[in-house]
């Protein structure tokens, strides 16, 4: 099975076959390692720079985009201005963008 687009191609089955081969050699390598440890002792406690672990040491998913939002704040604030919440505004934007896109396609 091979997907051919005219400008490129991709065969997932070939990749899966080779991935299985690489995974097999990775597994052989993994088997060489020492896999034992003292479970249930301090050894398998999460590392917190020597601090006692709080009951719920959890970093929430809402922090995921912090760096992204902080870095692009001016740009995002500018975009936020366009979000008026009125349906008519969104329809207008859609019509304008589609019209411009069609114009560009027609001209090229």
């Amino acid at each position: 099975m091979r997907l051919v687009t005219g400008q490129g191609y991709w065969s997932p089955l070939v990749w899966l076959a080779l991935a299985a081969g690489v995974a097999f050699f990775g597994w052989l390598f993994w088997r060489l390692g020492r896999r034992t440890y003292k479970a249930g002792t301090d050894q398998d406690a999460p590392f917190l720079s020597g601090e006692a672990a709080p009951e719920r040491a959890h970093v929430g998913g809402q922090h995921l985009y912090w760096g992204f939002l902080q870095g692009l704040r001016p740009t995002l604030e500018a975009l936020r201005v366009f979000h008026s919440g009125f349906l008519g505004d969104y329809v207008t934007w859609t019509v304008v963008v589609v019209a411009v896109a069609l114009l560009v396609v027609m001209l090229t």
Binding site: W27, R35, T36, Q43, D44
Partner: peptide, 26 residues
């Protein structure tokens, strides 16, 4: 690294934790 202990933290989702190094290598 081969002679070091391979510790899985007690807070981990064990199968994902162990599978991801393989996925990266593959």
């Amino acid at each position: 690294l081969l002679v070091k202990e391979t510790v899985v933290p007690r807070t981990a989702v064990r199968w994902v934790f162990n599978l991801m190094p393989f996925l990266a290598l593959v």
